Amino acid sequence: MYTLLVKTLSGFEQLLVDDIREYGGEILSVQKRSVICKGDHRLVVDVNVRSGVTVFVYILLEKFTAASKEHYVRNVSKIPFQNFVKTHQTFAVKSDVFQCPWIDNSMYASLLLKDAIADVQRKTSGSRSNVNVENPDVEFYQYIYRDSVSIYINTSGQPLYKRGYKTLSAKAPVNEVLAHGILRLSKYNQNTPFVNPFCGSGTFISEAVMMRKKQYPNSYRQHFSFSNFSWESFDTYWKNLLNSVPQNTPLSDVEIYGIDNDYTAIKNAQKTLEKIAEGCKVRIERADFFQWKSPVDKAFLLMNVPYNQRLKIDSKAFFTKLGDTLKKNYSGSECWILSAGKEHTRHMGLKSSQTIPLYNGQLPVFLQQFHIY
């Protein structure tokens, strides 16, 4: 059994807990943007492949206390790193350090761990691995809080919002993990026409398509770091898992619409959806949403509106026009808006029934629900 540190985005912790429990994992603790749990190699693969709200999955290798640098070096040198990274493989180290009395620099902490790994390899095999910061075969992560040290190995590799199906992004993107989590928080109704104004490169639509087709969020991803591990049969279970997915899932006839005025964004969305949306009724159109003639009266609308950060807008004019458009064309619909906050959406003249604080990257944003009457 492994103890896992599973990272997610702020606001998605309960969604991640639900996923881990569904896969048979035991929840040990829930923290800000992460969950500590316990399970076997199948849970490691399941959380990487099946959970759409996971960013990284780490396996705990060792946990100890260290009152000094010397104490740290003695303890970390006892870890059998030769079992986790072979000398022909490359490795990298990342660290987070908080309130530690004997070290306050995460880069120096990473250097200490890197040297310890190399020393263990030399003692056991006479040689050591090279370091590759950009694309390592194996990545170690350490978390130091005061005198508590936890050493992990990264089973995901690249962050899991890199699904493997996307080409290029438009301006002001929403990453795939954020889009997936928002669809779940909004309890996306797959039996209602889905309208995604300002769709950009189609991230919300892509994740909605994956949900409709009952495909695992990371089923298009070609590589996870656990494939580089020789000490457990992660790969075998991964391949069996992908082969177990039904290939001919009956699909709803309900249509999905994406609208954006940006030519490049629309082309990127269309290219992505050519790859993953076979069998789904998806229409991507280059149009001004305020002028677009909707083919449906009632819909489930979800939009990521400009935050007036990278994409500059006249906030009052934009949201007033948005509110007028929704009230005129979408009476009886449900609308979810991801925005920079209530000070912007209040100009819509609609009352939100729910507000959920989230982050888009480092930017605080708010997901609001509106029932349009």
Rank of each mutant, 00 (worst) to 15 (best):
80 P>V: 14
303 M>L: 07
267 K>I: 12
183 L>K: 04
110 S>H: 11
187 K>H: 09
154 N>C: 07
205 I>E: 08
26 E>L: 03
184 R>V: 11
181 G>I: 13
114 K>V: 04
161 Y>W: 12
39 G>P: 07
321 K>F: 11
209 V>R: 08
250 P>I: 06
202 G>Y: 11
334 E>W: 09
259 I>E: 11
359 Y>N: 00
140 F>H: 03
199 C>V: 13
3 T>M: 09
69 K>A: 02
159 P>T: 13
345 T>G: 11
320 T>C: 14
219 S>T: 10
52 G>V: 04
134 E>I: 01
171 K>G: 02
169 S>D: 00
3 T>Q: 14
55 V>F: 05
183 L>Y: 12
187 K>Y: 05
11 G>A: 07
299 A>E: 00
198 F>H: 15
221 R>C: 03
268 N>S: 13
242 L>G: 07
312 K>S: 14
39 G>D: 02
159 P>K: 10
104 D>A: 10
273 L>S: 03
195 V>I: 04
129 S>Y: 06
51 S>M: 07
313 I>R: 12
316 K>M: 12
322 L>H: 10
167 T>C: 04
85 V>Q: 06
203 T>N: 06
345 T>W: 12
87 T>K: 06
66 A>H: 08
265 A>D: 06
122 R>T: 11
117 I>M: 08
303 M>P: 01
125 S>R: 11
204 F>W: 12
298 K>A: 01
281 K>Q: 01
86 K>S: 11
161 Y>L: 03
168 L>F: 10
228 N>H: 14
319 F>T: 10
108 Y>D: 10
220 Y>I: 06
317 A>K: 15
48 N>E: 03
150 S>Y: 11
194 F>S: 00
251 L>A: 02
72 Y>L: 14
78 K>P: 01
96 D>Y: 12
41 H>A: 11
189 N>S: 05
88 H>S: 04
226 F>S: 08
217 P>I: 05
361 G>E: 03
106 S>E: 00
271 K>H: 12
31 Q>C: 09
145 Y>A: 08
347 H>D: 13
175 N>F: 01
84 F>Y: 15
141 Y>R: 03
271 K>Y: 09
199 C>R: 08
363 L>F: 14
371 H>Y: 02
23 Y>S: 05
208 A>S: 10
294 S>C: 09
34 S>C: 05
229 F>Q: 12
236 T>M: 05
360 N>R: 05
269 A>H: 06
240 N>V: 02
27 I>Q: 02
342 K>M: 13
214 K>E: 14
122 R>S: 11
173 P>E: 01
152 Y>V: 03
277 A>V: 00
211 M>N: 12
299 A>M: 04
117 I>E: 07
120 V>K: 14
142 Q>W: 14
310 R>W: 03
212 R>S: 06
233 S>P: 10
266 I>Q: 10
100 C>L: 00
6 V>T: 14
105 N>M: 04
207 E>I: 06
196 N>K: 08
272 T>P: 00
311 L>H: 02
312 K>V: 15
54 T>P: 01
8 T>A: 08
313 I>E: 05
256 I>Y: 05
53 V>R: 09
238 W>H: 14
142 Q>V: 01
157 G>S: 12
